[in-house]
Design a protein around this nucleic acid. Sequence first.
DNA 1: ACATCCATGTAACGGGTTACATGATTTT
DNA 2: AAAATCATGTAACCCGTTACATGGATGT
Lengths: 181, 181
Amino acid sequence: MNTLSYGLLGLLARKESSGYDLMLRIQPFWQAKHSQIYPLLSRMEEKQFLSSHWIQQSDKPDKKIYAITEKGLQKLREWMYQPIAPAVTKDELALRTFCLWLTETGIAIDIYEDRRIVYLEKKRYFEQILSDIPEDGRIFGSQAFSKYILATKGLMMAETELKWCDWVLDLLKQHQRATTS
Amino acid sequence: MNTLSYGLLGLLARKESSGYDLMLRIQPFWQAKHSQIYPLLSRMEEKQFLSSHWIQQSDKPDKKIYAITEKGLQKLREWMYQPIAPAVTKDELALRTFCLWLTETGIAIDIYEDRRIVYLEKKRYFEQILSDIPEDGRIFGSQAFSKYILATKGLMMAETELKWCDWVLDLLKQHQRATTS
DNA sequence: ACATCCATGTAACGGGTTACATGATTTT
DNA sequence: AAAATCATGTAACCCGTTACATGGATGT
């Protein structure tokens, strides 16, 4: 049982879903492909943390719906008392930034202009999620509370990244003006 | 040549180092163990992106110093024009947050109090790095400029995380007061 | 005509961690 | 006396991505 497996259990504890649907639902919190998720679901079913049944669909492919069992719910509750691993981030931009001195200022500016757009889109994505959460989803105990605080974090982080990016671009452009004149 | 290999090349382009030293130097930007780094250095030496020589030490084990070659520097410069992969973050806290409704408020508060300390330490770590960068390291073109803008990002992000954590703790404690009275 | 969405699954490979192996010096 | 630091390397294993395989419905 790795971290992703518990994440899937957590989603299933809220609503039974197909593997495909779980793949989509987990994206905002943990990036995983379907090829990683399907085998994990099979293994959890073997261990009887999950049960499943097939649903026939006429216009779309049939799907296998997984539901969490009492044993799975118990396993998930135990997990909540375990120590939490620190966050790990792999950002290629950090490694590139360390090599900025190797290139011209123009290339550096291109790099950060590109990243700026990514941060802007990220900000809009979380703004959209937040605007879709109703007022009564913003109090502890409601179904949407977790989504609310996670989307708030996503938005705050994106805004900070954007602010940083603009600050870096400012420094780079200042330098460019100073050296080309 | 994967991303980590380029990161190592980038560090070596600044200063020749041992594998052990590279392992320590790359930590702030990319978490990697020595067991991953040593084989990559060997492979890059085979491809003649690096050269190496042994240094004998009396009180410590001997060490193998790697230096970037002209061919390696060329490879690194080419890399600067390639597209940059988006950042990937794996944060177990996000998955746990989604399961908060399964536990009592007290457990939730414990989880965020713990994480608060992690964020505070992270903030102090980057503050320390920033205070060690001299005034003339803060202008583009200097050796320390990359370190300066990366540490600034680290600090800004840690401050935002801390702010978010305090906000969440506030919501949780408000709820606790409301339900225990 | 081509791409994307829905839906499931497996195989091969590369990325990354943990553990094994060694051993002197220094700190707790 | 035990643990951490410095220093290198390999082996086994798990995590994660890319590619292969299939195929109808819908969108551009």
